[in-house]
C-alpha cells in the first residue's frame, strides 16, 4: 500500500507546531504503529527527526498510545486502541492525518506525545481505598454480589489513555474520573470513603482545567474499552449525594 500521511510535528511545549506530509509504504497486516516504525526508520536514514509518539504494550492495555487519526481518537475502528489498529483498515492511496490527543489539561510535549499527568493527580486526590498493607481482613469475610463485581470490573477496565478527553468537544475528563468513582462505589470496600472520594476527585478534575460535560457522549464512542456513560450519571449522583448529605 502507498499512503500519504499528514503528521503533526511540534518540537516542544512552546513550539506552535504544524503538519508535515510524508509518503509511506505499508502492508495490510502491519499494525498502525509498525507503519510508523517503518516511517521513522526512513526519516532517520534521511537524516530527519523521527516522529515521537507514546507506546509500550502494543496490545491495547497500557494506555500509552494516543493518536487522533483522521479526526478520531484511536482511529476509525470501535473498541480499538491505536496500537491495535491495522493497516488493513485503510485503502491503498489513502491520506491519513495523525494528531496528538489535544486538551488544555493535556499539553503536547513533542509531536504526538502529550502530558497526561493530570490523570494521576485526579487519582491521587481519592481514587483508592485507604487500606495499609497488612490491614486487610480475610478476603472472604466480605462477600460481593457477582452483579456488583461485574459492574465494578466494567468500570475498572479503563486504561487511562485519555481518548475520552480528546474526543470530547469540551475536553472533559468525566468518563475517566467517573469510571474510578463508580468502581469503588459499587464495592463494599469503597463505602467508607465514598463521599469524600467523589468530592475530592471531581474537585481535582475541575482544578486541572478539564471542561464540563454537556452530554455529547463522544467519550463513550472513542473509548477503546467501551466504558459506559452510565458511569458519568453515577458519578453525578455520588457527587450530589456527597454535597447534599455531607
Amino acid at each position: 500500500m502507498q499512503i500519504t500521511l499528514e503528521i503533526w510535528r511540534q518540537k516542544g511545549p512552546t513550539d506552535s507546531g504544524h503538519f508535515e506530509t510524508y509518503q509511506a509504504k505499508a502492508e495490510p497486516d502491519m499494525s498502525f504503529l509498525e507503519m510508523l516504525d517503518v516511517l521513522n526508520e526512513v526519516l532517520l536514514a534521511q537524516g530527519k527527526e523521527p516522529v515521537a509518539f507514546d507506546h509500550d504494550c502494543r496490545e491495547g492495555i497500557c494506555g500509552s498510545c494516543s493518536m487522533v487519526i483522521n479526526g478520531f481518537a484511536h482511529g476509525p475502528e470501535a473498541l480499538t486502541t491505536t496500537c491495535q489498529l491495522h493497516m488493513r483498515s485503510f485503502q491503498d492511496g489513502d491520506r491519513i492525518t495523525i494528531e496528538p490527543f489535544r486538551a488544555k489539561a493535556m499539553p503536547v510535549q513533542k509531536d504526538l506525545v502529550v502530558d497526561r499527568s493530570a490523570f494521576d493527580r485526579i487519582m491521587a486526590a481519592g481514587g483508592y481505598v485507604s487500606v495499609n498493607t497488612g490491614a486487610a481482613p480475610e478476603a472472604h469475610s466480605v462477600p460481593v454480589p457477582k452483579e456488583n463485581a461485574e459492574q465494578a470490573m466494567d468500570a475498572a477496565a479503563c486504561i487511562g489513555c485519555g481518548a475520552c478527553v480528546a474526543a470530547c468537544p469540551n475536553a472533559a475528563a468525566m468518563l475517566f474520573t467517573s469510571a474510578k468513582i463508580s468502581q469503588l462505589s459499587l464495592l463494599p470496600q469503597g463505602q467508607p470513603e465514598r463521599k469524600a472520594r467523589a468530592l475530592a476527585m471531581v474537585s481535582q478534575m475541575d482544578k486541572e482545567g478539564f471542561g464540563a460535560c454537556t452530554n455529547h457522549y463522544e467519550c463513550m464512542g472513542a473509548c477503546p474499552k467501551g466504558i459506559s456513560v452510565d458511569n458519568i450519571a453515577r458519578m453525578n449522583r455520588e457527587y450530589l449525594r456527597s454535597e447534599l448529605l455531607p
Binding site: Y128, T133, G134, A136, A139, A152, A156, L184, Q189
Partner: peptide
C-alpha cells in the same frame, strides 16, 4: 490485600 483495595 488486593480485595481490600477494591480489585474486582
Amino acid at each position: 490485600q488486593c480485595v481490600a483495595q477494591g480489585v474486582p
